[in-house]
Design a protein around this nucleic acid. Structure first.
Lengths: 109, 109
DNA sequence: AAAAATTACTTTGACAGGCAGAGTAATGTT
DNA sequence: AACATTACTCTGCCTGTCAAAGTAATTTTT
């Protein structure tokens, strides 16, 4: 399990990416992250919903209620056009961050 | 300039790596980071000295005073054997973090 | 030689992201 | 009925980073 304070700051990217594939609800995203990372990383509930609030406030995502299938009512999120642009920036930023940190980690692997 | 909250959590690695090359003092590290990253990233003074305190407390680095050359007295840091082991862990962790985040950033570049 | 710039470190207080823990509510399973 | 699971919300705390202000010595400029 990867420490979450090392992923810190990249949660927006991860969540946005998943929402950009298709509209999703919180619980689904949480499970999808565990699944794709093979349980090497799990997002905490409190964190996930905090991210939603932040992104919604910035109009990067928007919410609508879906049907109640099983369990509580699902709140779906879709990415806005602003959000798509933002995600694009994040992707570029990530490749720059990788370069920079690699500069210092090289020769130690 | 890369946002520093995206580098957050990797400062220990960057600083430790530089100290592991040879004993260094704060100001030197700050300049070395700017230099190596070509000013794409600059560490803030307050942050740098906070990192030193944290690492010293955990016995990952240790300090000694060097000669006063120009400006204030230099406080040098050396990496301890505990620190070397820790740095090793950080390097491994970094490659895992890269893998995980890349999982979500793929197909968007 | 006084003034300004640079080198070098420290401390305080604030902010933001992440999280534990507790709670609400509906549905499915035993 | 009791329990497990799905699903979301809220409060209060912790930690890392940073702006701002300060101390102090040396070098450069005027």
């Amino acid at each position: 399990m990867v420490r979450s304070d090392i992923i810190r700051g990249h949660l927006d990217s991860i969540i946005l990416r998943l929402i950009s594939e298709k509209d999703r609800y919180g619980y689904e995203i949480s499970q999808e992250i565990s699944l794709r990372t093979n349980n090497r990383f799990q997002i905490k509930e409190a964190t996930l919903y905090a991210v939603f609030q932040r992104l919604e406030k910035k109009e990067i995502i928007e919410a609508y209620y879906g049907d109640v299938s099983h369990g509580g009512k699902r709140k779906y999120y879709r990415i806005t056009s602003l959000g798509k642009a933002y995600l694009n920036e994040l992707v570029k930023e990530w490749s720059e961050v990788k370069e920079i940190i690699d500069l210092f980690m090289e020769g130690l692997e």
